[in-house]
Amino acid sequence: MAFDSFNEFIAMGGHAPYVWSAWGVTGALLVAVVLHARAERRLLLRNLQRRVRRENRQGANQGEMAGVSHQMGGDRHDT
């Protein structure tokens, strides 16, 4: 241990503003980069899921429509 007390550790022998600002900016940047990557991934996954769900629904609708038109065609054929 290079320091005798916690206060001395914080004071950094009078160099506290320099040491802590350099370390603080570095640490903040690393954390920010990770948070950004996580948010990016979540957003992408959410958008992708929404798209897949929407397209599935559309696909199902189209299937129903096709069924209906087939029935209608059948009716028309009947009459």
Partner: peptide, 23 residues
């Protein structure tokens, strides 16, 4: 930050090396 000895010339400001050089 806590265990490495301070530099005999630069004192504790030397500890910036541990973020400056890796970056």
């Amino acid at each position: 930050l806590a265990f490495a000895p301070a530099d005999y010339q630069q004192g504790n400001s030397f500890r910036i090396i541990y973020v400056h050089v890796p970056a």
